[in-house]
Write a protein that binds this DNA or RNA. Structure first.
Length: 546
RNA sequence: GCGCCCGUAGCUCAGUGGACAGAGCGUUGGCCUCCGGAGCCAAAGGCCGCAGGUUCAAAUCCUGCCGGGCGUACCA
């Protein structure tokens, strides 16, 4: 049994024995300080509210009730807390459980029979992906993986917004670059896309097509738009390949129009009286529901806005039968998110159907100081180039190491650093060292320990017990990281495991220690397993050799 | 102006209302013939932005300020 559950069950038993009612939640925490033992419960505070007795008194009674429970070496009331010190055997049982569970350790079944869609990146095809998109790509991919660990069927989806004004601007910018390559002095529009990538494409097109498109007209626009989108999508695919993110479904905006979903959604909103007409446009009455502005849904020229299509898209998502939809978006979309959430509420969607995973932007700390990315201004670090430079593992790990809603400063110098100062290598190196140790054991003819017969009693070193107790947290970390869209908790966990392992490894010899060797190898097999699982969830490799 | 996010060690950041606030980097001082040194140990370093409030208990919840980011489009 997991350690917290062990304490929880014992406390429930003691509470019942005392004749009190067991609270719905029995809070059990890891002890903050060594003198508080291993685990602690504040349940006495809760019982105190209910029964009037002082917390310290309740804690004392519970402690005396629990003192004789076999898993505990010591049960001590301090103030209103009850602190538990575990017997080593109870800790060793966790180790057995981890190894016996194997693949299943850290997985859950809360999502059995349910499907979640994670929509992320969804970048307009106006340029290659940048380090800014990387955060979203890494985040979305990990969130999808976390949910699948909890038993959900998870779908990774990219919404391809390849219609509208921005695409025209892109086409016009590319055409200007093409004309420049033909020798014309044609400027890129001020509000167009100024990146070098279009200049390179323009030159290619000039070579291929010669002077075929001297002037800007409707048919030229169509040609350049199609060409631009195709070329840019090829770049985006290269970038996604570079970081190893694969999408299951690509949804194009055009499909939503063709299937009449926009009309359907609009009609539904109108029927519910949520839409009004003003200045020839149709607006969503949002301020009535406390939002700060009303967005246009249908422009006066009859075309739907991004917001309108976005609402229709969520109608489509529901029709596809998802139980949960997670949209990963940058901080510039908050207003949009509030509008969509409101629209879905008006349309009678169940609350909690759509959850936004919102993230702040990335700045890069490099030679030129701190800079923000801008695709439009052509000021960006292309994702693929970054991966070539620091590697996929580092690129991805750095992006999910921080809480999504915090600003992230990408430290290029630290990313380039290949020593253990770089947290990615620190964790990977822990895994590698253990792998190496097992190879060495094999060379020396030491068989891997048999879980059924191995004697774990030699594992008495505080470091060894601390390691097992940390490994015991892994399933909770996975669950919480998923629910709170917080992959950084997983980084923290694998770093913490590694941080316990490295000093231990430096101090303690494993091989050639008689019966101790088998016990220590068992421990390290579990450490290796959890590190490998954690890294895999994060989309980072767990190398056997470095 | 209004909305959302952030403010914690020199830097980058953790911290589901609980006990004396943590990690990595950086700084300083030690150690290292041994299974992978791409190390190990230790120290210094803090009015948790400010002020109120709720609570037995606040970095955490509420209110008001201050500072930074993003948004506030018939762009996406």
């Amino acid at each position: 049994m997991r350690l917290e559950d062990l304490v929880r069950a014992s406390v429930a038993e003691a509470v019942t024995a005392r004749g009190w009612t067991v609270p719905a939640e029995i809070p059990v925490d890891r002890a903050a300080r060594p003198e508080h033992g291993d685990l602690t419960t504040r349940v006495a505070f809760h019982l105190s509210r209910e029964f009037g007795a002082p917390p310290a008194e309740i804690a004392a009674r519970l402690a005396s009730e629990l003192a004789a429970h076999p898993p505990f070496a010591k049960v001590e009331p301090v103030g209103g807390f009850v602190n538990f010190t575990l017997r080593p055997e109870a800790v060793h049982d966790v180790l057995r459980k981890i190894l016996a569970d194997g693949e299943a350790y850290g997985r859950g079944d809360e999502g059995r029979g349910k499907a979640v869609q994670v929509e992320f990146v969804s970048s307009n095809p106006t340029g290659p992906l940048t380090i800014g998109h990387l955060r979203q790509a890494a985040l979305g991919d990990v969130v999808a993986e976390l949910y699948s660990r909890l038993g959900w069927r998870s779908i990774r989806e990219y919404y391809l917004n390849d219609e509208g004004r921005q695409m025209d601007l892109l086409a016009r910018s590319l055409w200007a670059r093409y004309r420049q390559a033909c020798g014309d002095d044609q400027p890129v529009p001020a509000d167009g896309y100024h990146g070098e990538y279009l200049a390179a494409l323009g030159e290619e097109l000039a070579r291929a097509w010669g002077d075929r498109y001297p002037g800007w007209d409707e048919s030229t626009r169509a040609v350049f738009r199609e060409e631009a989108v195709a070329r840019v999508m090829a770049m985006i695919h290269e970038d996604l390949d570079a970081i190893g993110v694969r999408f299951d479904v690509w949804t194009r905006e055009g499909d939503l129009h063709r299937r009449g979903l926009v009309q359907e959604a609009l009609g539904e909103l109108q029927r519910r009286g949520a839409v009004y007409e003003k200045d020839g446009a149709l607006w969503l009455a949002s301020t009535k529901h406390g939002l700060s502005r009303d967005p246009v849904l249908i422009r006066s020229d009859g075309t739907p806005t991004y917001t309108m299509v976005d609402i229709a898209y969520h109608l489509e998502k529901r029709e596809r039968g998802f139980d949960l939809v997670i949209d990963v978006q940058g901080a510039d979309h908050v207003d949009e998110q509030q509008q969509v959430l409101l629209a879905l509420k008006i349309l009678g969607f169940p609350g909690g159907f759509l959850r936004y995973c919102l993230h702040q932007f990335v700045t890069v700390k490099g030679e030129e100081g701190i800079q923000r990315m801008s695709t439009r201004a052509g000021r960006f670090l292309r994702l693929k180039d970054l991966v070539v430079e620091v590697g996929r593992d580092v690129a991805r790990y750095f992006m999910v190491r921080r809480k999504p809603q915090s600003h992230l400063v990408f430290d290029l110098a630290l990313a380039r650093n290949t020593s253990m100062e770089n947290p990615v290598y620190y964790v990977q190196y822990a895994h590698t060292r253990i792998a190496s140790l097992f190879r060495e054991a094999e060379r020396e003819g030491i068989a891997p320990p048999d879980l059924r017969t191995v004697d774990l009693s030699p594992l008495t070193d505080p470091c060894e017990l601390a390691l097992i107790k940390e490994l015991d947290r892994f399933p909770d970390v996975v669950r919480i990281a998923a629910h709170e869209f917080a992959p950084h908790l997983l980084c923290e966990h694998v770093e913490s495991v590694s941080g316990l392992f490295h000093p231990y490894y430096a101090r303690v010899r494993v091989l050639g220690q008689g019966p101790v060797t088998a016990a220590r190898l068992t421990l390290l097999a579990a450490v290796r397993h959890v590190l490998a699982e954690g890294l895999t969830i994060l989309g980072v490799s767990a190398p056997e050799e470095m």
